[in-house]
Nucleic acid binder design. Structure first.
Length: 423
RNA sequence: GGAGGAGUCGCAUAGUGGUCUAGUGCGGCCGCCUGCUAAGCGGUUUCGGUGGGUAACCGCCGACGAGGGUUCGAAUCCCUCCUCCUCCGCCA
């Protein structure tokens, strides 16, 4: 959420920043609604002050007629207040609705662009690796090894579901455990969060109202399945006023995630790249406002390190204004090369959200006792999504005989096992 | 799912229609006193909105779990919801 005062006082600055995005932003409508709201507020408060003052005198007045007279008058004032208040509530609802629809302002350093083809390469760890035999895609490897069963997934839940068996299931568990331990060493606190959250939690993380049709809502109750643990992590400190010493806070969380992915029918249909349910390790930071820029670099480095330690070829692109995303100020995508599908797979997306989510979730802090409250900054980054990391591991570590060597980092998490073989 | 109880300032509590401008204790902060510490003394202490001011700050309005209602006037009365506690039922 943007600061309404900034919009009120510097509308042109806001307008210019928003123009760099492709997002719809009801700026003028919001400014008009804000003016109307404040006019109604001034009138209402004036009458409330009068009623308060007079009502306090009522019990002191002994003359019955005079007392009755005042009560009558205040009844009229009360009616008028109620009337104005109805209009005021309406205006307030309009302001907050429009405010929730306003996307975040991009950081001035973010490159301009239309879509992901305009993203800017900032780092790369080597060239895409070619195998000296014909690389198989992961769906062939997975089926031959008996570790990914697509037919069973479809039987149980329909298209875009699969079942992991044996070493496949263990590999995913090893990846998650290894990543969580790595992030713990990088200063994160591990948390396990609810997968079902209330509407308010999704509003706080800015997944609502704009991404409503990409999420699953449970019938008859105010529960939604999380599209990412970023949402519950945002609300970990919702409504709290922290002290400056509490920041920064770094959390990491392993969770399942649920997405409708309805737009992408026909795209990425083969394999496990894009499903309605997938696991992922998430990293999340709460920082002081002046520290969030450096935290984004650190967070991105943590994602890169994860790829690096798995022995994968990776690169990092900075997202342009057109690919930045509704709630973000600035962000990067970390991608790994996978020779079977022959593409760069986005395994992590890191973002500095600034105070955008903190305003919605009311995550505040004080620099010292008695100081003003300020909004914290939040950042989020994928500590790598499981399916895409699995794809990259299977396809990069495959052998001519169809077996897959287990990356060294993961072996301690698989009982020392070095290789996955069929049978 | 059913029955009962609770929710007031950071914590603990007082407050059952106007004297609440929400009191008191603890804690925190500032100062005084004091070999040091502790104790003692004095002061201070929430959040939001809005208007004024360069600012420090000041005025007004709102907030006693949330939202409605009754009333000239609500922490206090009524309704709905949320959370927690106790018990019963059901359940992995």
């Amino acid at each position: 959420m943007l600061d309404i005062r900034l919009i009120r006082e510097k509308p042109d600055v806001v307008r210019e920043a928003l123009a760099r995005r492709k997002e719809h932003a009801p700026l003028d409508e919001l400014i008009r609604a804000d003016i109307r709201r404040r006019e109604l507020l001034t009138q209402t408060e004036g009458l409330q002050a009068e009623r308060k003052r007079v009502s306090k005198q009522v019990p002191r007045i002994k003359d019955q007629a005079e007392r009755q007279q005042l009560i009558e008058e205040m009844r009229g004032v009360g009616d008028r207040i109620a009337e104005l208040n109805r209009e005021l509530v309406e205006a307030e609802e309009q302001v907050s609705r429009l405010l929730l629809e306003m996307p975040n302002l991009p950081d001035p350093q973010v490159p301009d662009g239309e879509d992901d083809s305009d993203n800017v390469l900032v780092r790369q760890s080597g060239e895409p690796r070619e195998l000296d035999f014909e690389a198989k895609p992961h769906w062939e490897l997975g089926e031959a090894l008996g570790i990914i069963n697509f037919e069973q997934g479809q039987r149980i839940s329909g298209s875009r579901f699969y079942v992991l068996h044996g070493d496949g299931s263990r590999l995913q568990r090893a990846l998650a455990s290894w990543m969580l331990d790595l992030h713990r060493r990088q200063g994160y606190q591990e948390v396990t969060v609810p997968y079902m959250v209330r509407r308010e939690t999704l509003r706080a993380s800015a997944h609502l109202p704009d991404f409503e049709n990409t999420m699953y809502e449970l019938v008859g109750e105010d529960f939604w399945l999380i599209p990412t643990s970023e949402s519950p992590l945002t609300s970990l400190h919702a409504g709290e006023i922290l002290s400056a010493g509490d920041l920064p806070r770094q959390y990491t969380s392993y969770s399942a995630n649920f997405r409708r992915e309805q737009i992408s029918a026909g795209r990425d249909v083969r394999g496990i790249k894009r499903g309605h349910q997938f696991d992922k390790v998430e990293m999340y930071h709460f920082t002081l406002p002046e520290d969030s820029e450096a935290a984004l670099d650190r967070l991105t480095a943590h994602a890169e390190e994860t790829c690096h330690l798995l022995g994968l070829t990776w690169r990092t692109v900075e997202r342009c204004t057109g690919d930045l995303g509704f709630k973000n100020r600035r962000g990067y995508d970390v991608e790994v090369w996978s020779p079977g599908v022959r593409e760069w797979l986005e395994v992590s997306s890191t973002s500095n959200v600034g105070d955008f989510q903190a305003r919605r979730a009311q995550v505040r802090f004080k620099r010292e006792a008695g100081a003003r409250t300020e909004f914290a900054h939040t950042l989020n980054g994928t500590g790598l999504g499981m399916p895409r990391t699995m794809i990259a591991v299977l396809e990069n570590y495959q052998q001519p005989d169809g077996s897959v060597v287990i990356p060294e980092a993961l072996r301690p998490y698989m009982g020392g096992q070095q290789r996955m073989e069929s049978g």
